[in-house]
């Protein structure tokens, strides 16, 4: 990882202030070695305290509630009826639709993340070039990210519609198809249609993480590559890609998590399909609580915990495969 550390321009290095007094007196008493490297726990708590408070207060507490809910028996109204032991977990694992849902989830996450990364690499490269109107293009690219997912999903249900959808109208007009495609109703088309929207809304975020990464690559590296007679493709593959690795990994991990947890697209585009045929684990969890005949918040909580385990394992596996922590 440290190999990717960029050089710093001289301007930044000289930006250090001259004689500012230290804002707190403690560090002065410590040895210089400690200043640079190690601190005891109580100093760490001072710096990390606010973050820890937020995480413990707002995330961990509800997680405890989730665990509690998963171990409880609930009436259909949400009234707690006592302890359930591990019954909710058993019920979820015994659900007939589980296999379908897991396969859907795998397809959804892998397809969306892979396509998003691929397209975003191109988009980021492009956005990093200098040309007239680049700023406007950058503003345009952010729009799918800026729009609420719920609304974008609703918009796409209209665009995809069999009868009044613009997409079918367009395809019919240019003669690509003779009869409309049932994008959201035909079993073969539902997943690809959802994936397309998933990729579309994930690109902006990913592209900007990669743009930040590209910006960190100093120009003189390319200069060196050119002097060595590398072709553009070689330069990209041998210089850009390795230096971009940290950014790619961050973007991939975060995308895995977001795409896995993505709710509105699947829920909305899949709204008129009965059963669990095109659901992922997240919409499955929601439907267990409110829409399916189970209507059981205990089972839903259990499914929620399974979900966390799945994505945790997936991310750890990814990090292991790509040797994430080479340095630390």
């Amino acid at each position: 990882m440290s190999s990717a550390r960029p050089m710093v321009s001289g301007a930044a290095a000289t930006a250090a202030p001259d004689t500012a007094p230290p804002s707190d007196s403690k560090p002065r008493r410590r040895r210089a070695r400690a200043r640079r490297g190690r601190e005891p726990l109580h100093v760490a708590l001072l710096w990390l305290g606010p973050a820890l408070a937020l995480i413990l207060g707002v995330v961990v507490w509800p997680v405890v509630e989730l665990v509690r809910a998963s171990l409880s028996r609930y009436s259909i109204t949400g009234l707690r009826r006592g302890d359930a032991g591990l019954e909710n977990f058993r019920q979820v694992l015994a659900n007939d639709a589980l296999d379908t849902v897991l396969v859907n989830t795998l397809v959804w996450v892998v397809a969306v993340v892979a396509l998003t990364m691929l397209v975003s690499l191109g988009v980021a490269q492009f956005l990093n070039k200098d040309f007239r109107g680049r700023r406007l293009v950058r503003w345009a690219v952010i729009v799918p990210w800026a729009a609420s997912l719920v609304i974008t999903a609703r918009l796409f249900t209209l665009i995809y519609s069999y009868y009044y959808g613009v997409l079918n109208a367009l395809l019919l007009k240019i003669g690509l198809i003779d009869t409309p495609i049932d994008f959201l109703g035909s079993d073969a088309w539902v997943m690809p249609s959802m994936v397309a929207v998933g990729v579309f809304v994930s690109i902006p975020f990913t592209a900007y993480v990669l743009v930040a990464g590209l910006n960190a690559i100093p120009g003189d590296v390319y200069e060196a590559a050119r002097l060595d007679g590398a072709s553009p493709w070689q330069a990209w593959r041998l210089v850009t890609l390795p230096l971009l690795r940290p950014a790619i990994m961050v973007a991939t991990v975060l995308n895995m998590i977001y795409v896995f947890n993505s709710f509105p697209i699947i829920y909305t585009l899949n709204e008129s399909n009965p059963g669990f045929g095109h659901d992922t684990t997240i919409t499955f969890m929601y439907k267990l609580a409110f829409k399916s005949a189970e209507k059981d918040v205990g089972q839903s909580a259990a499914a929620g915990l399974f979900n966390v385990c799945i994505i945790l394992i997936a991310v750890l596996a990814y990090l292991r495969i790509t040797r994430w922590r080479k340095e630390s």
């Binding site: 995330v59 507490w61 809910a69 998590i257 969890m285 839903s300 929620g304």
Partner: peptide, 14 residues
């Protein structure tokens, strides 16, 4: 990192 993995939908009751 783990805090990112919980879907707020599942935590909303808590």
């Amino acid at each position: 990192l783990v805090t990112q993995m919980f879907s707020p939908t599942s935590l909303v009751v808590g």
